[in-house]
Computed example of a mutant assay.
Amino acid sequence: MGGPIWAEPIHDLEFVQKVLSAVSGNPSRFGTSKRIKGILSMVTEELEDVPLYYTVENLSSAIHCNTPSLLQFCSALLHAGHKVSLSHACQTAIKTDAPPATIWDIMRGWEKANPVKREKLSKTSPAFKILSTEPSLDACFTVREDANPHSRKLHLNRFQENPQAFWGPKARAKSSGGISTDLQDKSKKFQNKRKNQTTDPSQLKTFPCKRFKQGLCTHGDTCRYSHDLEQTKEEKME
């Protein structure tokens, strides 16, 4: 890890509470009042004396196991006697005062309940080294009520949402000028546009039967495609 890092509280909670009061008292004043309220509510719930955070999916990826839910992981930390909170910086982030040894003991406990295939792990891999150590903590993943923060229970708009459907990088510029603003245009344009496609059953007799060529067609005269290979060759030449 590079440095230096700021290890002191990153929020002025007195100021945050004043902004929350202003937004709650006059929500129509701001177009983004719901998002302001959601993010600042998360800020008031964050641990002040923990500068960094873990993400549950990265912890799981390190030992190649499936991922516990946020509530399960937070509950395991609370059962172990540690403080824990979510973070406004990332949807799957967890802040805790638990030491790294406890974090990995909890992940080892999770892996015991959801085992990975040890034989597929390289003996020099971090996953093998981590899982080769027996946990000194008996992790409990029973979900606790206090593991779910108030802002999450209220379903506040805590993180930025896409402003519209198919939001993101658009299609490249067209040769005629301008760009496509609807990513569905392309799929509609080329839908069912396979080469030589036809929907008229009477026209299918102009196409040779591939299975007949291989000696595999069992439909005989009732086959929708032509078994007269010489005729179809002549029609194609015309």
Rank of each mutant, 00 (worst) to 15 (best):
M1F: 09
P4Q: 10
P4E: 05
P4L: 03
A7D: 11
L13F: 03
A22E: 10
K34N: 09
R35M: 12
K37I: 11
G38D: 02
E45L: 03
E46Y: 03
V50L: 09
P51R: 10
P51C: 07
S60N: 09
I63S: 01
L71A: 14
L77M: 09
L77A: 05
L77W: 03
H79M: 03
H79W: 12
L86D: 00
K95P: 00
K95Y: 00
D97W: 07
A98V: 02
P99N: 04
T102F: 08
D105I: 01
R108E: 05
W110H: 01
N114M: 02
P115L: 04
E119N: 10
K123R: 14
T124S: 11
S132P: 01
E134G: 00
P135C: 08
A139T: 04
C140A: 12
R144D: 07
R144A: 06
E145G: 01
P149Y: 04
R152H: 13
H155N: 14
F159P: 09
Q160A: 15
Q160M: 13
N162W: 12
F166K: 11
F166Y: 14
A173N: 04
K174M: 15
K174Y: 10
G177Y: 08
G178S: 08
T181Q: 13
L183K: 14
L183E: 09
L183C: 02
F190Y: 15
F190W: 12
Q191N: 14
K193E: 08
P208V: 10
R211G: 08
G215D: 00
H219V: 04
D221P: 15
Y225H: 07
S226M: 05
S226H: 02
S226R: 00
D228W: 05
Q231M: 15
T232W: 04
E234D: 09
